[in-house]
Computed example of a mutant assay.
Amino acid sequence: MKTLVLGIGNTLLTDEGIGIHVLQALEPELANWSDVTLLDGGTLSFTLAGPIEEADALIVVDAANIKSKPGDWTLLEGEEMDAFLMSNRKASVHEVGLTDLRAIAILAGHWPEKRAMLAIQPQTIDWGEHPTPAVATAISPACTAIRDLIRTWHHVA
């Protein structure tokens, strides 16, 4: 099963770049996992439609307003992810783009059945190359949740 882990964000805007920071933390371990691709999606573009359509499973990591404390995170799977994207269009700078990419994949006939979004509550979105301390604490547990989800999907112990 081809799994795409897509980190979203702008690493020049503090907590906005958390998706990329999580991806970078995952890279040393997951880079060697067969059938797992880590992709820096930056601030999104329609060029990501192809990799999403080619994946059997998709995990998106992004800063999003989950109406919680900075650094809190949640893992939204399947239709729960879709509902979040469709009902919270303004919860993150990128979710309009994710909604568009979802629509493209559905029209092309391939929105991965196995899909999830790991959303992390930002504290600050302002100039800066590092996440705030509160949001940086989410990196390790987010990585663990992603590894566990991939293992579950791949039925690997």
Rank of each mutant, 00 (worst) to 15 (best):
G71L: 04
I66T: 11
G97Q: 04
K67M: 09
A105H: 05
T99I: 11
T74P: 00
H94C: 03
A108Q: 15
L75S: 03
M81W: 02
F84Y: 15
F84Q: 00
L58Q: 04
I104N: 06
D72L: 06
D56W: 10
E80W: 07
V96S: 11
S92D: 07
H110I: 10
A103H: 06
A63G: 06
P70C: 04
R89M: 14
H110F: 05
M86V: 10
A57D: 05
A108G: 15
F84P: 08
R115I: 02
K90G: 11
L85D: 00
H110R: 14
R115V: 00
D100S: 14
L58C: 08
D62M: 12
W111K: 11
M86N: 13
N88M: 05
E80C: 08
N88I: 04
A105K: 02
S68C: 08
E77N: 05
I106N: 03
E54N: 12
A57R: 14
S87W: 03
N88E: 02
G71I: 07
A83N: 12
E77P: 05
I59G: 01
L75F: 08
L85R: 05
E54M: 12
W111A: 09
L75N: 01
L58F: 08
W73M: 14
E79A: 14
L107H: 14
M81D: 00
E54P: 09
K67L: 10
A55E: 00
G71C: 05
T99G: 15
K69G: 01
I59A: 00
I66N: 06
R102G: 00
A83D: 15
R115K: 12
H110D: 07
H94E: 00
P70R: 02
V61W: 08
L107M: 13
K67C: 10
I104H: 09
R89D: 04
V93M: 09
A83T: 15
G109I: 04
A55T: 05
G97M: 10
L58K: 03
L75M: 12
L107A: 15
A105Y: 09
L76K: 07
A57P: 11
A55W: 01
G97P: 09
A57T: 09
E77H: 08
V60F: 01
K67G: 12
I106H: 07
L101T: 04
K67V: 06
K90S: 13
D100V: 12
R115F: 01
L58I: 11
I59W: 01
L107N: 15
L101M: 06
L58E: 02
I106R: 13
V61M: 10
E77L: 14
D100I: 09
D100W: 02
L85C: 09
G109L: 01
A63M: 01
I106G: 01
E95R: 11
A108E: 12
G78A: 06
D82C: 13
G71R: 08
L75V: 11
T74G: 11
W73D: 00
P70E: 02
R115Q: 10
I104F: 13
T74D: 10
E79S: 14
A55S: 07
D100N: 12
R102D: 00
R102N: 00
H110M: 04
N88G: 09
E79C: 06
N88Q: 11
V61F: 11
S68I: 08
T74K: 13
G78R: 03
A63Y: 01
H110G: 07
